[in-house]
Design a protein around this nucleic acid. Structure first.
Length: 114
DNA sequence: GTATTGACAGACG
DNA sequence: GCGTCTGCCAATA
């Protein structure tokens, strides 16, 4: 069993828990996935994640609520569009974390942990 | 084994 | 809110 795969699984699970219309940050996802300080690894895993999973990667932003991709980039525009479709207002490659910030629910975390 | 890069985070100004 | 610097960890060259 590859532990690496397990970490990735945990990350994917955590990202999948993010509700529509809400956004989270890499650091938070990494923390919830049991990888404190490994926010970069989250990004790498997400990019390496299979499309079959339909992972809501677009709901994962920086800690400041800014889009991780470069402004005007294809991926960035796609992410922004997806977020807007879910009701998340994106302004200048940035979302209002104060309003759309997602806080993990204990029930969901508990459910995924065991 | 060292240097560079990356879908990052936090502190400072 | 924005740019810069430092710290962190993993993958890549």
């Amino acid at each position: 069993m590859n532990f690496d795969q397990q970490k990735a699984q945990k990350i994917w699970q955590t990202v999948c828990l993010i509700l529509a219309g809400k956004v989270s940050s890499y650091g938070l996802v990494a923390d919830l996935a049991g990888l404190p300080g490994r926010a970069r690894m989250v990004g790498r895993v997400l990019q390496h994640a299979p499309s079959e999973m339909q992972l809501p990667w677009h709901r994962v932003l920086r800690s400041n609520g800014q889009i991780a991709f470069a402004p005007g980039s294809d991926s960035a525009r796609r992410q922004i569009e997806l977020l807007r479709l879910e009701g998340v207002e994106v302004c200048r490659n940035r979302v209002k974390m104060k309003r759309y910030g997602w806080l993990p629910q204990l029930d969901e975390l508990l459910q995924m942990k065991f």
